[in-house]
Design a protein around this nucleic acid. Structure first.
Length: 558
RNA sequence: GCGCCCAUAGCUCAACAGGAUAGAGCAACACCCUUCUAAGGUGAAGGUUGGGGGUUCGAGUCUCUCUGGGCGCACCA
């Protein structure tokens, strides 16, 4: 994968008794400026009965290569420094930064991935914690697409349940209710139901009628759910987050799929009826992080609970024919997901791969929709647009809504995606919309700088002599450019988009340092000018593609 | 109480599979625009990687334990 490692391993193998299998996995990139490739010799020490520094020293003395500038044995490490012209030429000629090239290289065009993400309760406007789910999911969709996979993005609509029934109850006398009204209505009816037990009773009546197929109730539910889904998807649509399919939970009841799966479960001795008449799956002995795992799948009257519907849905996804089946879930669902997975295995189905993410916390504590202590995604987006537009106005002298939107939403996505999913994110307005330094705007800005230079270029730089790129800044930039493929693979392997954000910031920093120390357009050396133009053109592609993977757009001009 | 995850500079985050002197950004300080976009760049400053033990030639990374935070622990979705 790493061409320099490959070259170094060959070099060592040719000049010593080591095999490539011994050398290659041990090679690493040295810290700071100790060289281009390093070989720690500690692991060979025991077997060879020699001190690591002796091994390194011996190797150093016997290695020669025309492309080698310097080889040093330092404290048990063997450090290789190659001639910069060799590094530049080798890496630039082997860059993989275009989707088309990557498609060809990895050959994953026949593969298909199913990704389920977001699947919020359709009861109100999403808050920024739920947005984390959508942003991670959408970024992973883009990563798979970029690698040539066919993607199938699903949203599980939980249209059966007490929250929806409560909204149906609370809006029955309000014919013109809008999506924006629903959050307050939901909070109010929750509050009211604490003191008025009649509400709870009516809500369960509604739910019962819905489940048993009463057509008027079904249409009432559909109306509320439809308002929610439309409202939610409109918000996500603005962030360019889309789904291929919305799967409705109620389908599993109304089409009696739950009954069929229940019949399958009944064949297992693990399913039993408890003293209250509910059907329960005994999951003791499964690797589930609680003492006595039991999964209750039906109510007393044998109608399905959510867990059973979820099992049905999960089986559908597992049987969809996708090569990989991925779901993004909040950390609160960890144990529950293990239970669903165990139930699936019992039925001979393969559980999804899960990406868990931790919650977004507010300075005053955790978010709670019911208590109204939330930062809504819609509000975050509005603030992002306005703050970005204020900056655009300040810099350019006039406001530009479209630009502000791209910049603002970029900052929003970047601030959430740059954190590793397993970590809690502390949200505060000051840090969340950062437009300086480690931010999306930093990369967008430098992208625009490059476009500006390329627009002024007066020569064809398609064919360039890369061996002319020998300054420290050029080599650093080239190395980071070459890392694009590695970053993509790491993200894919770990299902963690934060690697992309790290990468693009690093890449942009290298470019910025190059830009501020070296000239391009006013060079008299035409060949060097062409080489540098070619370098920055490729840098722009890598920045654009990295930002694309995060769901962030670029601008040719800021 | 039990289980899983997290703890790194004042704040927000990095550190590929255990490798060398733990890196950035923000904030604060000092510089750099008659040069391709200063929405930038440079410098200095900032750390006993939450505490303690263990494994290893080598630990922020693995392990044990304690502390603090997040999440969960059948009849919600």
């Amino acid at each position: 994968m790493n061409i320099l490692f490959d070259y170094t391993a060959d070099l060592i193998t040719k000049n010593s008794d080591f095999t490539k299998e011994q050398i290659f996995p041990n090679l690493e990139t040295p810290t700071q400026d100790k060289g281009d490739v390093a070989l720690p010799c500690f692991k060979f020490s025991k077997e060879m009965h020699l001190a690591p520094n002796v091994i390194a020293q011996n190797l150093a003395e016997h290695l020669t290569d025309e492309n080698l500038l310097k080889i040093e044995s330092v404290g048990g490490y063997l450090n290789f420094t190659f001639k910069p012209e060799f590094i530049a030429k080798t890496l630039m000629e082997n860059l993989l930064i275009n989707q088309a090239d990557i498609d060809k290289k990895f050959g994953m065009q026949d593969k298909k991935v199913l990704i389920e993400h977001t699947s919020i309760n359709p009861n109100a406007s999403p808050h920024i914690g739920r947005a984390r789910n959508a942003l991670i999911g959408d970024s992973l969709v883009r990563v798979f697409k970029f690698l040539g996979w066919k993607t199938d993005v699903h949203y599980f609509v939980n249209d059966v349940g007490k929250q929806i029934a409560m909204l149906v109850y609370a809006t029955k006398d309000k014919p013109n209710v809008t999506f924006e009204d629903l959050l307050q209505i939901y909070i109010d009816v929750n509050e009211e139901s604490k003191t008025n037990p009649e509400i709870e009773k009516s809500v369960f009546e509604l739910l019962h009628k819905f489940e048993s197929g009463d057509s008027e109730t079904i249409s009432q539910f559909n109306k509320v759910v439809s308002i929610c889904i439309k409202g939610q998807t409109a918000i996500f649509d603005e962030l360019d987050i889309k789904w291929d399919k919305f799967d409705y939970e109620s389908r599993y009841i109304h089409e009696h799929i739950t009954d069929k799966v229940l019949d399958e479960l009944k064949k297992s001795p693990k399913l039993f009826e408890d003293e209250n008449g509910r059907l329960v799956l005994d999951q003791r002995g499964e690797d589930i992080g609680i003492d006595e795992p039991m999964l209750v799948v039906t109510r007393q009257d044998k109608t399905s609970l959510y867990a059973l519907r979820d099992i049905c849905y999960s089986i559908d996804k597992a049987n969809s024919g996708a090569d990989r089946n991925i779901i993004i879930l909040g950390e609160d669902q960890k144990v529950y997901f293990q239970q669903i997975s165990a139930a699936m295995r019992l039925l001979g189905a393969k559980p999804a791969e899960v990406v868990n993410y931790s919650f977004v916390l507010l300075p005053e504590g955790k978010m709670s929709t019911r208590q109204g202590r939330v930062v809504l995604l819609a509000d975050f987006m509005k603030e992002a647009r306005e703050k970005a537009n204020a900056i655009v106005t300040e810099k350019r002298g006039e406001s530009d809504i479209e630009k502000a939107q791209i910049i603002g939403y970029g900052a929003l996505k970047y601030s959430i995606l740059k954190c590793s999913p397993e970590k809690n994110v502390l949200f505060d307005w000051k840090n969340a919309l950062n437009f300086n330094g480690d931010s999306s705007l930093y990369s967008q800005y430098n992208y625009a700088r490059i476009q500006s230079i390329l627009g002024k270029a007066d020569c064809d730089y398609k064919n360039a002599d890369y061996s002319l790129l020998t300054t420290n800044e050029e080599i650093s930039l080239i190395k980071q450019l070459y890392n694009f493929t590695n970053m993509l693979c790491t993200t894919y392997k770990n299902l963690n988009p934060s690697f992309i954000a790290n990468y693009v910031f690093n890449l942009t920093t290298k470019f910025s340092q190059f830009y501020s120390t070296q000239n391009i357009l006013n060079l008299t050396d035409i060949e060097l000018k062409k080489a540098r133009l070619n370098l920055i053109a490729k840098t722009a592609i890598a920045i654009k593609n990295s930002l694309y993977l995060l769901g962030i757009d670029v601008l040719n001009q800021l």
